[in-house]
């Protein structure tokens, strides 16, 4: 197994985990792409030759970073020799997994974190509370009832208005279009009553009651 190139060994490593290799999707030769369940995996492999090239590690990390937003798990595969000089905290803080290998074995040293947990907070879709749903239904019902009531009031008002415009007031004989001619009065001297504003000398006048009984519960004059 160790005689196989590292790319083949990593391929078999992920296939053994149940992952399926994706066809090449624009990645370079040192990259592999897999699907594992709902997760998508991008694996970038650094060889012993790569680590002596100063910019190769940086290029590998930038390459993986270019997949942010599209994939969920990123891996860097590097020789165990390099593991001693890498700070694992940097990989963890960015959610990138690290797989170290030597001639005999391949070991996942740092597990990758799902990309969305580190880069952005997705809006959660809360399950609606049944109590709230019930209250909403009640409010909706009340609103509908109010609309119907308002509509009835509007219809009745229109009907009354139409009747009042068309009917005679019928005082004794009834005269169409009965309206009172407005006449000015000194407003400060008025007393508000059920019959409208009256002069102030009407206020608390007991004769209003006495005279209104004339011809009804009649008490005959004392004399004359």
């Amino acid at each position: 197994m160790a005689s196989l190139p590292i790319e083949q060994r990593i391929l078999h490593y992920f296939l053994a985990m149940g992952a399926q290799q994706n066809p090449s999707s624009g990645t370079n030769d040192s990259s592999l792409s897999f699907t594992l369940g709902n997760d998508k995996l991008i694996v970038n492999i650094l060889t012993a030759k790569d680590i002596v090239q100063r910019n190769r590690i940086l290029e590998a990390l930038l390459h993986l970073a270019s997949f942010r937003g599209a994939l969920t798990q990123l891996y860097v595969v590097a020789p165990r020799l390099l593991g001693a000089s890498l700070d694992s905290q940097i990989f963890r803080s960015h959610g990138i997994g690290l797989i170290l290998f030597d001639e005999r074995r391949i070991e996942e040293t740092i597990k990758p974190q799902p990309f969305f947990q580190h880069t952005q907070s997705q809006p959660t879709i809360a399950t609606p509370d049944p109590t709230v749903l019930s209250e909403l239904a009640t409010l909706k019902s009340m609103y509908s009832q109010m609309e119907r009531t308002l509509e009835n009031i509007r219809a009745e008002f229109t009907s009354i208005k139409r009747d009042s415009e068309g009917k005679a007031p019928d005082l004794e004989r009834g005269t169409p279009g009965f309206t009172f001619e407005p006449v000015m009065r000194p407003p400060s001297l008025l007393v508000e009553t059920a019959e409208g504003p009256l002069p102030s000398f009407f206020a608390n006048n007991p004769w209003l009651d006495v005279l209104s009984r004339r011809g009804r519960s009649e008490v005959a004059p004392l004399a004359g």
């Binding site: 209003l208 209104s212 004339r214 004059p221 004359g224």
Partner: peptide, 20 residues
């Protein structure tokens, strides 16, 4: 003032009576 109150309060059907 008394005339106005009288006219306002006395019912319309209280008819004129020459005796009183």
């Amino acid at each position: 003032h008394g005339c106005i109150i009288y006219g306002f309060a006395v019912p319309d059907d209280y008819e004129w009576d020459w005796q009183r």
